[in-house]
Design a protein around this nucleic acid. Sequence first.
DNA 1: GTCTATAAGACGATAGAC
DNA 2: GTCTATCGTCTTATAGAC
Lengths: 214, 214
Amino acid sequence: MSETAVLAALAPEGGRQSAVGDVADTAVRIMLAAADAFAERGFHATTTRDIASRAGLSPAGVYVHFASKEVLLFELSRRGHERARDLLVAATAAAPTPTEALRAIVGGFSRWHAEHYGLGRIVQFEFRHLSAEHRDAVLGLRKEIDEVVADVLRDGVSTGEFEVADVPATALALLSMAIDVARWYAPDVRYTPEAIEAAYGDLAVRLVRAPSPR
Amino acid sequence: MSETAVLAALAPEGGRQSAVGDVADTAVRIMLAAADAFAERGFHATTTRDIASRAGLSPAGVYVHFASKEVLLFELSRRGHERARDLLVAATAAAPTPTEALRAIVGGFSRWHAEHYGLGRIVQFEFRHLSAEHRDAVLGLRKEIDEVVADVLRDGVSTGEFEVADVPATALALLSMAIDVARWYAPDVRYTPEAIEAAYGDLAVRLVRAPSPR
DNA sequence: GTCTATAAGACGATAGAC
DNA sequence: GTCTATCGTCTTATAGAC
């Protein structure tokens, strides 16, 4: 996972996103440190001291930039969800047919959960530790992600490429395959993110394709 | 989720498993309390005081029956994994063909993660919070579960019912669909465990079935 | 904006009475 | 086997110097 890719996902919207000097930005450094810690140990097992020390700061140094540990989780969760949604929207727009759109979506989403499995774990498995207000704020992004997949399934059904009994249930199952990659993936598994993308894109198409005429 | 079903999963092997009186057994009551708390909040966000109070005990009362909070997690994780494995082994043995075995395995595993979504969350998502020794002890059970699915896939490939590019990768994707049910399922979703069983059993077969001859 | 020092309380686990 | 009381430690977050 390249550091710049993570920075692109985490850097504040208004930030100077071109400069490598962004890594020196303290807020970004804290977010990267928190992302590593949350992904490794989970939100509640991570201490603010751990985050501060990974970022090269004193325990108090974090609070100049973030009001609480939970706000830090929220910022990571929100940016991660936005990044994931943007990926799916772009993949759908670029595909010529529903079949290719589905392959691109599920393959790309699976690859993203492998390449960014740390951020992926935070997005998918630390979501429930957000405060009620922040959880609501992120819930809208999660629904957008569900809808991208459901829309592609409906498109494919209408062209006759797909045969799907229950569109929302199938969308959920397809997303489950990709989401779960963040749980089991580690850099030492025998699959590369690219191999996962190809394999899971194929599996997705097999799952919904209408039977060939006999 | 019936209470007796959970008790059957949690009661100590030597326990009087027929009597309803088992609920009164303090160790079982503590395990049920811990299972609820861990599933709701996660292991690290759960306090021993919370477990004790749910079980109707003082904070010290837990330690007569369990040496630590982590040992309690281990007991729940171990029994849950055993239960899940037994389910898969029984489903495979009862099925006449690889196709029906796969339908029974993935459908049954998915249903189990819905009906017992609390225990399912502990098994699948709190696994990493076990101590190194206890994690190793449970890892064997997880491998057994993977192997049941991979064996059925290999059987189906050899009979020609299935066409699978990569058996371990496909087994992983099939398990992912079922495991992720524990993440999103709640009693208020619009799917019943029975509907999930039927839908996911079908999806599993579609994912691996060889194309019909033309 | 970063530090040292510390407040204020919660944490896992234990001691010892009954 | 359960209780009350508490130990020693760690926790999030803040105060105030620089």
